[in-house]
Amino acid sequence: METAAEMNKLFSDFSEYIRKEQDLKEKIRDEVKNLEHIAREITMIMQNVHQNPAQDEVLKCCNSSRANFATCKTHYAQLAALVPVNQFYHFNDMWRFATQKLAFLVSLTFFLETGKLASFEEVAESLGLKPEREKGFHLDLEDYLTGLLQMASELARFATNSVTSGNYDRPIEISKFVSELNAGFRLLNLKNDSLRKKFDALKYDVKKIEEIVYDVSIRGLRPAAGNADQAGN
């Protein structure tokens, strides 16, 4: 009965296909675990800035992080070797979370070092990723943006702890930065997806930071020259 034979062929082809895909997934998963492990390490390192927000201590943490970013490059290279061209988005969900977290950590480090926004290209470069899909294993724009939103949330916390340590400059600097970031995000047409949700949370971070600046201002702790007299009222 020919049909039965055809059907069998069909389904054994399919089984083979699935088996290969699962093997590949297994290998990807191992590589992603390595990335997640590094991300956890760096997270731990960066926790220290809240404990000790003095700029020189902060820079030490940043240096320590940078060393770890270097290691990421190796793992991303191995990942890139595994994933066939044009199947990046077939498996993307597996490392998406790790990449977002690393993008967050890179941009946080960068801001703490320079007070500026790490550009898309800089983040990609730090992790050994290509900035464009055509050029190979790349950084997804949305993952980069997600990382920025996580950074904003962490900066809200950092503003709090800076004040605790008597650093009244930093909240104002952060406020300016996050405000601008907020304005930038408002330019985007975000669909109703996970990025949109995280962007909604940004609202609260902005508010939180505004309130810190408020506290600093009303108590006359604001360092700028012209405000000193006002605080004395």
């Binding site: 926004l117 898309f120 943006l145 601008e180 304005a183 930038g184 330019l187 985007l188 047409n189």
Partner: peptide, 14 residues
């Protein structure tokens, strides 16, 4: 703002 300029590019991509 530099940030705004960059985000305009992002907006086009998205």
């Amino acid at each position: 703002s530099e940030i705004i300029k960059t985000f305009k590019q992002f907006a086009l991509q998205l």
